[in-house]
């Protein structure tokens, strides 16, 4: 295997972006899942469609929308620009792109976890004196941990592979915004760098396997805990 310093930087950046994107999306994902599963309100269908949209849209389209939104003339871009925080073509843009693209996967898993909770457990908790937020923290959160874990690892893995949206909002700047898929894309376009591309592919496979193993182990541990 051959890795140059730029590759190491790409690996580091990929892990950082995936981790940050998952961490950023998690609270929103949990809150929206809770809203969808446990509350009744008008326009729930619209919200569900909006959440799931990135799953069906081409990532490039999402990237383009994000560019419009976060660019110098976009709604959010203007505000950020005024407060001196540049987003576009930085690693932060890659985080936002990954978070947007992976979000539906996260919400799907957490929702499944929450939907498997028996409604009467929640009713029992409320009738025993727990306010809704208390029930959320002591019953719903622990009982949807598996869904949260599954969703997080899925989203982490999806973020590692994010390409289309990232290349549009973050660019492909080695050492700054170049993640593993972008680096592989670079290598793949020149015939002399096949070995380099293969090395990074191998790293990709390795990380994915580790993520899946961790996911399985955590799932088992949670199983054991609930069987105690």
């Amino acid at each position: 295997m051959m890795l140059v310093p730029e590759d190491i930087a790409a690996i580091g950046l990929s892990l950082k972006v995936a981790l940050m994107a998952t961490a950023l999306a998690l609270p929103f994902g949990f809150a929206l899942s809770w809203l969808i599963v446990f509350t009744k309100f008008r326009g729930k269908v619209v919200l569900e469609v909006l959440i799931n949209l990135p799953l069906t849209l081409p990532p490039v389209v999402i990237g383009f929308f994000l560019l419009l939104l976060l660019g110098k003339n976009g709604w959010i871009g203007k505000l950020l620009d005024a407060s001196g925080i540049p987003i576009i073509f930085t690693w932060k843009a890659a985080v936002i792109a990954s978070a947007t693209v992976g979000f539906p996967l996260l919400v799907r898993s957490i929702r499944l976890g929450m939907e498997s909770i028996d409604q009467q457990l929640i009713e029992a908790s409320r009738s025993l004196g727990a306010a809704w937020y208390d029930t959320l923290a002591t019953i719903i959160l622990p009982l949807s941990l598996r869904g949260i874990m599954a969703g997080s690892s899925l989203m982490f893995a999806r973020s590692l592979g994010e390409f289309g949206a990232t290349i549009i909002v973050a660019g492909n700047i080695p050492g700054i915004t170049q993640t593993i898929p972008l680096a592989i894309y670079d290598y793949a376009s020149s015939p002399s760098s096949v070995t380099m591309a293969l090395s990074l592919c191998l790293v990709s496979v390795l990380i994915s396997v580790v993520v899946l193993i961790v996911h399985e182990l955590l799932g088992k541990k949670l199983d054991r805990r609930s069987a105690l």
């Binding site: 029992a124 009738s127 025993l128 727990a130 306010a131 809704w132 805990r225």
Partner: peptide, 29 residues
């Protein structure tokens, strides 16, 4: 709200919290 009514329910199925031990279940309320 239900938590302020102080009316407890025993359901048809026991509905014990599966992630808590017997003692924590007992002391929940």
């Amino acid at each position: 709200s239900p938590e302020r009514r102080r009316i407890a329910i025993v359901f048809q199925q026991a509905m014990l919290f599966p992630h808590l031990c017997v003692k924590s279940n007992l002391l929940y309320g």
